[in-house]
Structures are given as C-alpha cells and as structure tokens.
Write a protein that binds this DNA or RNA. Structure first.
Length: 500
RNA sequence: GGGGCGUUAGCUCAGAGGUAGAGCAUUCGGCUUUUAACCGACUGGUCGUAGGUUCGAUCCCUACACGCCCCA
C-alpha cells in the first residue's frame, strides 16, 4: 500500500488503518484463537424466563463473538451489541470491571469491528439480556465504515454488488436467504420421503436440448470443441429413467442466453423431477401438496402475501385448458376457429403480435395466451393441454393429438412450473426433433437440435413417466415477497463494476 | 433494442444558473443502565464521466457509463 493510495482513501478508512497499525504494534492484529460457547439468539431463548435476580444467582458466564453493530459510550461504562449468525446480544463494558487498560483501548474500536466478549448474564433495568464483560477482545479490525445504522443500506446497486455489506446490515436480506435455504431443504425432504434419488447431470453439454432457449457457448481447449452450458437437464434425467432409476430429481443451475429483468437472471435454479408410472395429473397433485406443505412449513400459514396480493395455498388451485383460458380472457373470439391458423394469425395481427410464416395454430394460440392471459393468472392456476407444436418433449393427448398432456403452473401472473407426461415413443420423438431442426434451419436459434443418443435411449424403452420443472428463484420470490429475482440471488448478474 | 427515472459527504437524503446543506458516522471533549443514547465543538465533497451553451454550470443541452422500472 503506497502513501499515494492511502492519501486517496477516505479519511474514515485512513483513520481505521492508523488504528490497525497500532494493533499490529501491540501484537497479532488478526488472532485465530478465539472460541465462543454461545450464540446470541440461543441465549435470548434459553434465558427468556430468567429475571435479573435469578441470572445473578446462577452466575451464568458465557463467551460470545460477533460484529459490533452498536457502540454507546457513557464515560467509564459502555453498551455494545454483538451480532452473530443467530442475532444480537448486548454487552456491558465497565472500566473498573475489565483488566487495566482494556477499556481505554476499547474506546478506539469502531462499529463494524469483530469483537469477542466473556462475562456473566444479567438484565438491564429495561429487561434486556446483557453480558457484563470480564474480558473483551478486538478480534478483527474493520477498515471500512458500515452504512448508517438507522436507514441501513438502501442503494440497490450496492446491495447487489456488495452483498456482504447488505447481509451485515439488513436483517431482511439475511432472512430472504434463510428462507431460500429452507425452501430447498423442504423440497429435498419432500422428495426424499417419496424415494426420489437426487442426481447431478452435466452443466456442459455437446447438444442443445431439453428446452426452447438460447444457450451460452464455451470452448474446451484440450479437445478443441464447442460446448453449451445447459439450458435444462431434462434429456439426461430421462436417460436415467430409461436406466431404471424411476424417480430422480436435480436442483441445480440452468443457463439461458437471454435478457436480464426482474424475472430473469442468466443463470437460475431449477428443480426438475421425473417419476415413472405417473402422468401429468399425478404431478398436478404433487405440486398442490408441495405448495400447501411448503407455505405451512416455512411461513407458518397457507396465506401468502405477495406484493400486496394474498394467495391462499390451502384452497384447491384453479384449472383451465389453454383454449378455455384464451376464451375466458378473449370472449369475443370464435370458439370454432381456435385451431384455424388464418383466423388466429388475424387475431395476432390485431393484438400487435408479429407472426412468422412457420407458426402453426398451436404456436399462435400460445402467442395469444402469453399476450392476453398469462399476466392475468393471479391466483395459483394450472393451465393444461398445451399445443403439441410448442411441446416437443411432451406426450400427445390420446383423444386429441393437437395437444399434449402438459400443464404449466402460474401464480401472480408468472410461470412457476412446467410439467407433462413424457413422450416415450421414440418414433414420435424423432419426428418432433425433425420439426425442431426444421425450425432451426428456418432461423429459430432457440429450437432444439436432434439428439440421436436420446432417441437411442428411448428405443431401449422408457416407462410411462411424468416430469416437471419448478423455478426455485421465482418460488422463493413468492415466499419472501421479493419484487425482483435479484433479491433472491446472493450474487445476481451485474455488469462489471469499474474500479479506477 | 425502445422509453421513463436516478447518480450530491462513508451511509440516508435535501438543494439551487452566482461557487454546497442536514442527520447519522468519523475526530476531540463530557457522561457508570444505554436502546436511532445524550450534551458540546470540529471535520468531511473534482455534485457519475466527457464535451457543449454561458461572464459563470453541480444545476441547462448532448453523448457515454452504471443502476432501477416499464415495454419488445
């Protein structure tokens, strides 16, 4: 660190650097022999019923450590608050109750420093559980000042770029990520209880498939070949069903080369599960059970408040087919012409939806659905019977081959899940791949490639199977009342910061 | 890609074509039960970057960067 650099630093940091230099002179400024035997919140709960008198009688000596978030000096005595992973605990420091000189040193410590303290518990006159320190140590000096204590850190950009500061200062933010962890843990327990096997499949793939999206491309130097970051694990998971694992799931990242928005991050987390000898109706029931249980378990209520709307997860969710919901939100449409390509193309033109030559009636239906229905599906709702044209991996409906046995699940106008009875007919699947390849050749760079090995796998025979993908980030947004996907990602994608 | 809004002290925010403000934090002093502790004094800024208009720009204009929101 040159003198010039030091001079450029804010005076606040320079001041703390001076203090650190003093600490270095006095000994090891970064000790690693600190041990504690209690957590703040544990103490609050354990001694909830102990008044001051009882605490003093029992003389309970504890050792805690954490970041000093509050420092109130009143002459020869002070109160500080230490924050550890569980919460905060107050510590009282008295000059005459500490070894000589310690209190004078403490007066130079800053809010944000990591501090260890040991002493007996008592309660202040307002009843706050407090440790009267016999020993107190500065464990790690913080060189940078924390955001202001009352308003915290409000700047969105800093919250995302310097998540560590956000986590220090905003309890709400810490809670979002605790809930996120609880959601994933709940799902694992839910599936493990049903004898599902958790698996991991490649992030780097040689063939683009499993979803309709643009991939990121990377390069393997030693093999001199292009690889795609996966847009979905679907085809690999179904290979495992062919292999006889019968019930598998993966919770992991997908990568899609698309724009960034409040709903989209280039990498996001999906649960995908596949269950042999089940159909899409079974999965609809599974989603209902999962959602009910998760809300109860994590929020302690089946009523989920999201951005001013309340959703009741204990009620049966609504169900409509794609064509039913299109008619519901577009009652003027001619019911008899919902599969008439020219009629639908005319409707799209009225709605300002660009129509390509290659779009069939099914694709046009979905365009109309996206434009006029999706955002209006506020309450938890299943939409079923998606057109075969836009469902290249789904099983055709036995009675109506124009549609597949597929559903999507919506809450608050957003797609949360997409599931279907899997297409296990290798010849039908080969035809669907060919249609995708044709789309690709006509310029659709989101279309799938023909996956020869997947067809080969299906030719060995995949039992009747149903599968589903659930967007974990969007689910966590719902359960944490978060407006943006960035709020539920520890390190959301940002343009690189410029350091000068 | 298009549109709107934003960027001022470490943090949270005011502000006005005439040379910059508050609270908290920092620094110094006081205070042995505080709770956004309190009392007193001080300190702190190339007003996002680069151009332009102007006697004068942080303010008006243009471009760019970054962020937020909406649309595609």
């Amino acid at each position: 660190m040159s003198n010039d650099q030091t001079a450029d630093e804010s005076k606040l940091i320079a001041e703390r650097r001076r203090k650190l230099a003093e600490l270095r002179q006095q000994g090891n400024a970064y000790p690693n022999d600190v041990r504690r035997n209690a957590l703040a919140e544990e103490l609050q709960l354990t001694f909830e019923d102990h008044d001051d008198e009882r605490l003093k009688q029992e003389n309970i000596v504890v050792a805690v450590a954490g970041r000093m978030m509050v420092k109130r000096v009143m002459g020869k005595a002070s109160f500080i608050k230490l924050q550890d992973r569980s919460g905060q605990i107050q510590v009282r420091l008295e000059r005459d109750h500490l070894p000589d000189g310690v209190y004078q040193g403490f007066k130079k410590w800053d809010v944000g420093d990591i501090v260890a303290a040991q002493g007996a518990l008592f309660r202040t006159k307002t009843g706050e559980l407090t440790i009267l320190a016999d020993e107190v140590r500065l464990v790690t000096k913080s060189l940078r000042p924390l955001p202001e204590k009352f308003h915290g850190l409000a700047d969105q950009e800093t919250r995302y770029r310097q998540r560590y500061v956000d986590l220090i200062v905003n309890e709400q933010s810490r809670n979002v990520f605790r809930t996120r962890s609880a959601v994933v843990a709940y799902i694992r327990a839910f599936l493990d209880a049903q004898d599902f096997l958790e698996v991991e499949t490649p992030m780097m793939q040689t063939t683009q498939g499993g979803a309709v999206a643009r991939p990121f491309t990377t390069h393997h130097n030693a093999l001199d070949m292009s690889l795609y970051l996966r847009i979905a694990p679907e085809l690999n998971l179904k290979r495992l069903i062919v292999g006889g694992l019968e019930r598998v799931y993966e919770i992991n990242r997908n990568f899609r080369n698309e724009g960034v928005s409040t709903q989209h991050n280039p990498e996001f987390t999906m649960l995908e599960l596949y269950r042999a000898y089940a159909d899409y109706e079974d999965l609809i029931e599974m989603v209902e059970a999962l959602m009910h249980g998760m809300a109860d378990s994590i929020l302690g209520t089946s009523k989920v408040n999201y951005q001013g709307e309340e959703f009741d997860f204990s009620q049966p969710f609504e169900r409509y087919t794609v064509e039913e919901i299109i008619r519901r939100f577009n009652p003027e449409l001619d019911e008899g012409k919902l599969r008439d390509r020219e009629y639908l193309a005319g409707i799209c033109a009225e709605l300002g939806i660009p129509v390509k030559e290659s779009y069939g009636a099914g694709k046009l239906q979905i365009e109309i659905f996206d434009k006029t229905c999706e955002n209006n599906l506020r309450k938890p709702t299943f939409i079923t019977q998606y057109p075969t044209e836009v469902s290249p991996l789904s099983r055709r409906n036995d009675d109506d081959p124009f549609v597949t046995d597929r559903f999507e699940f919506f809450i608050a106008g957003r797609e949360i899940a997409n599931g279907f009875s899997e297409l296990n007919d290798p010849e039908d699947q080969a035809e669907r791949f060919n249609a995708q390849v044709a789309d690709r050749e006509s310029g659709d760079d989101e279309a799938m490639a023909f996956d020869h090995d997947y067809i080969r796998a299906l030719e060995y025979g995949m039992p009747p199977t149903a599968g589903i993908g659930i967007g974990i980030d969007r689910l966590v947004m719902l359960l944490t009342d978060s407006a943006s996907i960035r709020d539920v990602l520890l390190f959301p994608h940002m343009r690189p910061e410029v350091f000068d």
